[in-house]
Design a protein around this nucleic acid. Sequence first.
DNA 1: GCCATACCTGTCAATAGAGACAGGTATGGC
DNA 2: GCCATACCTGTCTCTATTGACAGGTATGGC
Lengths: 199, 199
Amino acid sequence: MSLAHAILGVVEARPMNGYELARFFDAHAGWVWSAPRSQIYPQLRNMEDAGLITAERQVRGERLERRVYSITAAGAAELREWVSTPFDTRSKRDALLLQALYFDVVDPTVAVAVLRNVIDEQAAIARSWASHADQLRRHNTPLLKERLKRRPPTEHERIARIKAHVFDAGTALAQARIAWAEEGIRILTAGPDDAIAAE
Amino acid sequence: MSLAHAILGVVEARPMNGYELARFFDAHAGWVWSAPRSQIYPQLRNMEDAGLITAERQVRGERLERRVYSITAAGAAELREWVSTPFDTRSKRDALLLQALYFDVVDPTVAVAVLRNVIDEQAAIARSWASHADQLRRHNTPLLKERLKRRPPTEHERIARIKAHVFDAGTALAQARIAWAEEGIRILTAGPDDAIAAE
DNA sequence: GCCATACCTGTCAATAGAGACAGGTATGGC
DNA sequence: GCCATACCTGTCTCTATTGACAGGTATGGC
């Protein structure tokens, strides 16, 4: 399951508790991988049971404790193994494309409104991904700084470039979707005359 | 749920039984939306209970029956409603990007091998999507032919263009991923000298 | 007539994921 | 001292999704 590997990659940078992880997935990794709290806490327990992470338990008050999780050697090995494994990249579901596939059953103006919404959302995504890639290239995100502390300085530039390049993908894919939606609007707004003229 | 709407869009073209739908999702719609048999059969029952589709039951042998489902007026209304609704297009999970995010923990040659696999797979996807878009533009797929029988001829060209444009998206996104993976290989194979030289 | 194959419909168990609900703890500002 | 807020860990229920398993029916080729 990918959530486990997403968590392994984060705690590999620095130890975190469930709350921090949940906030991190909301704020940052949510762009690449998202998960609700109700999935994170049980997942951490499972990973602890599996020996992929260890918890340092800190007592808080009378009943609560805070568990700060660190990656274990087994966890690091599992992460390397998973990252090394080529897997099926064929996307199995795309709700946006499914919706567009049936645009012929609604009024063109309605479909155009849906596509305009797509363009606005994807433009916002492209901006925030580009901004994050830029921050990474400047070695300027909190988690990257923590991560680099544990790596030799000669590797720092390379690591930052690898991370930034992932967010470049988000930008490029968002821009591809925008271009596609714009072309879709042209197709939907072309009248029957245009269609015949274009034959 | 999107599976229900994927099914509605297919049976809107022509009535089908569960087996045909399962094969269709494997062969064609699987590119946009996939589902195993074990999800399709219960889903059809639910949709029948909800009045979105109706089944014509044909007896086969002593114990089996074949159920051929057609869309109802309520189902067609539900499909139009769903297609008209702008929804959140921010992708919540991308296993490929998650994997690439942690390429720094493995040997570059391993990461490059993963990316080469991505390129091969995405190239195959781009080819088959482009081919399908071409077939649609020629009004040459079985389901499109069925679908057009129920629409006025003046609409045929428009409908074919809308469908084909969805598969253009698949091609464009696959090509964007290929370009991204190729750039990733360049970053991974660049030595420390290159990195310094590029500063 | 037999058999391989395609046709046809399901069940079951397990995991993943979403969203609502529940409740205790520390701290800074008033 | 009180209270709002952020910190912190969970449970519960429902639905989605997967993969394995189960089994009956029609048909064309040998």
